[in-house]
Each structure stands twice: as structure tokens, then as C-alpha cells.
Simulated scan of single mutants.
Amino acid sequence: MSTIARVDIDASVRQALAEDLAPTALWSLLLDVFERRAAQRSPAMVRQQWESDRFVQPCAIDQRTLNTLDAHLLAAAANFEALELSPLAPLAACSSVALTSQNRIVSTARGSEIVSDPTNVLALECARRLRSAPGAVVKLTTSHRCVRAQPVPKRPGFAAHFRMFCLASAAHERKDHGFVAEALIEHIRTHIGALDRLEKHGYQFPDRSLRLLATPERRHIAERIASAVPEIPATLQTLEHRYYDGLRFMLDAGTPDGNPVPLIDGGAFDWLGKLTDNRRMVFVASAMGSQLAALLFRRVALIA
């Protein structure tokens, strides 16, 4: 059920705005509305929003720290092509293929949305490339500031906007789920390598552990993945979250107070099959909460 308050307007007007108006006509109408609203705002009103709106507050982490962190993470992902994404994505970039609500995303008046999850945008780019070259293997990475509209946990490091380091791999599936297994192993190893690299530059990620979650029919793939990364303790669990396509991994690290933090999350997704109309096209994505890493796991000043 939507958590957005419904405005009391005539049902025919709501129908026209929601469904009947052509997209270009709707965008033009909304742009006119926002232009009029902006004309009514005083500098004092803008200042008050700057001071109180969680969506516009600056990040709590120093920008130099984040820039250096990004450099180390991207260096660890040398086998992936690095993309600098636009701050905007097509409207419904997430909700059209994934189990998420558009109400959790900041939509714009121009038929687009602010990027809330870079992995969905990377899936779009993978689909574009594979439609023109179906036999290709696409491997992409990015570090991106995201904005999400859902309530924020009242815990250190969580905010309405935050930085994520992402990996994405896509290709036509091979026999015995060969590509998905290989891609997940590469993602896990790349993230482990990134943590190892950061530990040489002022970070500590103690008590690391790997959780592999799979549906019963894909448990054998999870077992194959676990055996391929013996350098980290792994546990196998049953996957119940329908957001993933049968396989998920989570990489945790311990904070000084001894509590494990789920720092890295990834898995297989069915998005590429939907975007290309080819169910044999498979997509693996993973992400690290890099802003969370800077806040909780940085021990000393970074050394370039």
C-alpha cells in the first residue's frame, strides 16, 4: 500500500494526471507547476529547507576521504570497466524490473528519477550492449551517490543520500549456470580484494564472514561458490527474498563493539531477461556501502 498521502482532488483530474495525459503533456504541466511554485518561494524559505530537509543535507564524511576511498575501490576492480553515471535514470528504472515501489524513489518532473540504485542503471547499460552484441561479456563498475525516499534507520552512517560502490556482470548463460557462478565468485573476490587494499590505507575490517543464500534448487551453485573462496568463512542459508533470482551473497565485517555489519550485498537478478526479452541473458550485481565503510571502519587518516 502506498505511504504517500492522497490529495483530495476530483477523480477525473487524478485519472488524467495518472494515466490519460500523454507523457510530454504531463511533463510540461508539471514543469509549469514547479516554475510557479518556485516563483512563490523567498530566499528565507529556501534557507529553511536547506537547514531541515534530509534530502539536501551535505554528507557527513569529508569529500577528500570519499574521493581517496573511491580511487582504492576502483583500483581493486581493475577487471571491470568504470562508468561515471548520470545523476538521473529513466522513470521506473527500478520499479519496472525489480520488487520495489516508485514511492521509495525521488521522481522528477521531466519523466526521470534520481538514481536510487546504480545496479539497476548498470543493468540498463548491459542490456543496451548485449542487444547489439549478444555474445559479449559485459563487466562494469561505478561509485555513485544515491538518493532514496524511504525512512532512514536512526543509526550512524544512514542517510537519505549515500555513496555506493557497485559491480555488474552480464552475458548469455552457459551450461550448468557457469556464468552466474563464475561472476559471483569474481564479485566476492573483488570485494575481498578491495577490503584488503583498504586495510593498507587506514581501514580495518575484522571478523569477516560470507553468507551464501540460495533457493533449494540452486544450493549446489552456492556450494560451488563457497568452495571457490576458501579464504573467508562461509555459511549456506536458504534464500527467501524474491528480490534475487535464486542466489545472494552477503559479506559482513565486525565493528569495534563486536557487532557484525552487512557491508557488501550481491546476487543474481532476472532484470536482464526482462530488459532484453531473452531469459538466457543473466545479470549479477553487487554493492558495497562505501560511505558506511568510511564512517565505521576507517581508523586513521588515509594514505594515498
Rank of each mutant, 00 (worst) to 15 (best):
S96D: 10
D32T: 06
L30F: 02
F269P: 14
T3R: 12
L275T: 07
P230H: 01
L124P: 14
G289D: 10
D53I: 10
R163N: 13
A168K: 08
D10K: 00
Q204F: 07
S112K: 05
A22I: 08
V115L: 00
D270V: 00
L184M: 15
A18G: 03
V152M: 04
A253Y: 03
M45F: 09
R104D: 14
M250V: 09
L69W: 06
C59G: 14
V46F: 03
R279P: 14
L210K: 10
A16G: 05
R163P: 08
L26H: 05
S112Y: 06
F205S: 01
V46N: 09
Y243E: 15
T235G: 13
T215V: 10
M281K: 00
A234D: 05
A71F: 04
H177V: 09
L198A: 04
N103E: 15
P230W: 01
A5Q: 07
A285M: 11
I105K: 04
G267K: 03
R189G: 05
K139P: 14
G193H: 02
I4Q: 11
A123N: 04
A5L: 13
A109K: 12
Q150T: 08
I185S: 04
F269N: 09
Y203G: 00
S209V: 01
Q237A: 11
G111Q: 01
L73G: 03
G289V: 00
F55K: 05
A92K: 05
A159R: 08
H161V: 11
L302C: 09
L239G: 06
I9F: 06
L247W: 05
S116C: 08
A168P: 15
R208T: 06
V137W: 01
V282T: 05
D196V: 13
S209R: 12
L140C: 09
W50H: 07
V180K: 08
L212I: 08
A93W: 00
R163K: 07
N67A: 03
R242Y: 10
P87L: 03
A16C: 13
H201Y: 03
S132R: 13
V46L: 08
I185R: 04
P233I: 01
Q63P: 13
T100M: 11
A44P: 13
Y244E: 05
M281W: 13
Q102H: 07
A149H: 12
L272Q: 11
M250F: 12
S2E: 13
A60G: 09
L302W: 04
D70V: 00
A77G: 06
I188K: 00
A304I: 02
R6Y: 01
D32E: 04
C94P: 00
A301W: 03
T108E: 08
K200R: 15
T215K: 07
G266S: 09
P153M: 04
R110P: 06
S101P: 14
N120R: 13
L124S: 11
A287W: 13
F165Q: 15
A294E: 05
V261P: 13
D10P: 11
T3Q: 12
S95T: 10
P262D: 06
H172R: 15
V7L: 08
Y244W: 12
A89N: 08
C166Y: 09
M250H: 10
G193Y: 02
H201T: 10
R242A: 11
I232V: 03
